[in-house]
């Protein structure tokens, strides 16, 4: 690839490749973990990766047995989100982001934890002055209440369905056509007679060039 007459370049390229690898962090998995604890009258859920790094900016959805899922908010820089429960629980928290999700193993907020937060809220209400003094930052979003009795009818998303089908069809067709084209014209093997003939021809040309160079330097 790099001519032997350029040892500087020959040494520079591996060094450049190593430089690229310098900031590589240790291998880590993408599995998303979650923990929850009661903080005053709120429940604080923390999302983090296997290596302990906080999962920032994930969208968190809360589900109850009674009602539909609702968006709770986004995790902060510590990968945390806090909310004040109003129902009895249990709740399931699902965090989602590009490539990361704990949808298969949602964080369960048990009724006991909810009850503890509710008790703390009642205490804070009965002693407003004390509660005001000890209150932390405001919760990011309230827990959804009981499910609405009758939701308005949503029109069927024909446009989205057709666009999805067209996208998948085009992507599949594009891939299959290129795959067939690749399969129809495989790269020649090194022991292929045509490839060998071409290599011999190249070597002959190089030999001819070398002979000319030698002839120029030593005419006798």
């Amino acid at each position: 690839m790099i001519p032997a007459t350029r040892p500087f370049l020959r040494n520079l390229l591996p060094a450049a490749c190593l430089l690229v690898l310098l900031p590589v962090s240790s291998a880590r998995a993408h599995r998303l973990h979650a923990e929850a604890r009661v903080l005053d009258d709120r429940i604080r859920a923390e999302f983090f990766f296997s290596d302990g790094l906080p999962a920032r900016g994930l969208q968190v959805v809360i589900e109850t047995d009674a009602g539909p899922a609702e968006i709770l908010g986004q995790t902060d820089d510590q990968g945390a989100i806090a909310f004040r429960p109003t129902g009895p629980g249990p709740f399931r928290l699902i965090a989602r982001g590009a490539g990361h999700s704990n949808a298969g193993r949602p964080l369960i907020i048990s009724p006991e934890m909810v009850a503890e937060a509710l008790r703390a809220a009642e205490t804070a209400t009965s002693r407003p002055a004390a509660a005001e003094a000890s209150s932390g930052p405001e919760p990011q979003a309230p827990v959804p209440g009981p499910p609405p009795g009758r939701r308005p009818a949503v029109p069927f998303p024909w446009r989205e369905v057709l666009a999805s089908l067209a996208f998948v069809f085009l992507l599949t067709a594009f891939t299959l056509v290129l795959m067939r084209a690749c399969a129809a014209s495989p790269l020649p093997r090194k022991d292929d007679p045509a490839a060998l003939r071409a290599e011999v021809e190249n070597l002959r040309r190089e030999l001819e060039v070398l002979r000319r160079q030698v002839g120029r330097r030593d005419p006798s």
Partner: peptide, 30 residues
């Protein structure tokens, strides 16, 4: 680069499996 669960609608994930099945089947046959 990869898309997580619960992001794409069913109208895209189901045909996606069909398309991926075709691609994998083509590779398997070769």
């Amino acid at each position: 680069m990869h898309i997580a669960d619960d992001i794409l609608p069913l109208s895209m994930t189901l045909p996606g499996f069909l398309g991926a099945g075709l691609v994998v089947a083509d590779g398997l046959r070769r």
